[in-house]
C-alpha cells in the first residue's frame, strides 16, 4: 500500500489498443444467411403472418378457419339443432322419433313436408285435436312452443326438422318465417284439417 500520490511519477506511456483490419470471415456471413433463411421458413410456417387472431399452437389463419363452424346451410342446421334440443327435443326426441302418448314423430312426417306457412303455423300457433302422422292417429295438443323464437331461430329449427333424420324437404329462410308469421297473425290455433 502506498501513502503518496503517484501521479507525477513518470512511467512508460500507455499505448491505446489497436485493431487489425482483416475482413469478416466468410463462414460467419454464410451462417447468418443460412439462419436468416431457416428463420424465414420458420416464420412463414408458424407466425400466421401477423394475423391478430392466430395464437399458438395454431399456426395460420387457414388452420383456424378449418376449425370454425361452417357457413350457410351447415351452420344453420347446427344452429337449428341447438334450438331444437332446447325447445322441441323434450317431446319430439333428439332422434325426431317422437314419444308414445306424448308427441308424434317428426322423422318422415308428412307435416314436415308441407308448405312453409303451414309448417310454421304449428310452433307459432300450436296444434290441437286428432291428426294422422305416418298412418297413425294422434289426438293430443301442442302449445305454441315456438311463438317466442325469433324469425332466424325458428327458420333454423324448421330447417333442422325438414333436413334431419332422413327428411329432405329443403331449408327455410328467416324471411319465409316472417311472411308466415304475418299470414297467420290473429288466426286461431291450427285445426287438424286447416293446413290442407
Amino acid at each position: 500500500m502506498s501513502d503518496e500520490l503517484k501521479s507525477n511519477i513518470s512511467q512508460p506511456p500507455d499505448a491505446g489498443p489497436t485493431a487489425s483490419r482483416s475482413t469478416v470471415p466468410i463462414w460467419i456471413i454464410l451462417l447468418t444467411l443460412l439462419l436468416l433463411f431457416l428463420g424465414a421458413v420458420y416464420f412463414d410456417r408458424h407466425s400466421g403472418w401477423f394475423d391478430k387472431q392466430v395464437y399458438a399452437p395454431y399456426t395460420s389463419a387457414d388452420e383456424l378457419a378449418s376449425y370454425q363452424p361452417k357457413s350457410g346451410e351447415a351452420s344453420m342446421l347446427a344452429h337449428g339443432k341447438a334450438v331444437y334440443e332446447t325447445y322441441c327435443g323434450l317431446c319430439h326426441g333428439s332422434d325426431g322419433l317422437g314419444k308414445p302418448a306424448q308427441a308424434p314423430p317428426l322423422a318422415g312426417s308428412e307435416w314436415a313436408a308441407k308448405d312453409i306457412t303451414s309448417l310454421a303455423r304449428i310452433p307459432l300457433a300450436g296444434l290441437n285435436g286428432p291428426i294422422q302422422v305416418k298412418g297413425r292417429d294422434w289426438n293430443l295438443s301442442m302449445a305454441p312452443m315456438g311463438a317466442s323464437l325469433s324469425d332466424a331461430d325458428l327458420a333454423a329449427v324448421l330447417t333442422c326438422i325438414r333436413e334431419s333424420w332422413g327428411n329432405k324437404n329443403g331449408a327455410v329462410s328467416a324471411d319465409e318465417v316472417k311472411a308466415a308469421r304475418a299470414a297467420i297473425s290473429g288466426h286461431p290455433p291450427a285445426a287438424p284439417n286447416s293446413p290442407k
Partner: peptide, 28 residues
C-alpha cells in the same frame, strides 16, 4: 409460450436464434 398472437413469439424466437451470430463473432 406467451399468450399473445403467434407472430410475436415466433418473431422473437427468430431473432433470438439469429443472435447466435453476434455471440459467435464475439467468441471468435
Amino acid at each position: 409460450g406467451a399468450p399473445v398472437p403467434a407472430w410475436m413469439p415466433v418473431l422473437s424466437s427468430f431473432a433470438a436464434v439469429l443472435t447466435v451470430v453476434p455471440v459467435l463473432a464475439v467468441a471468435a
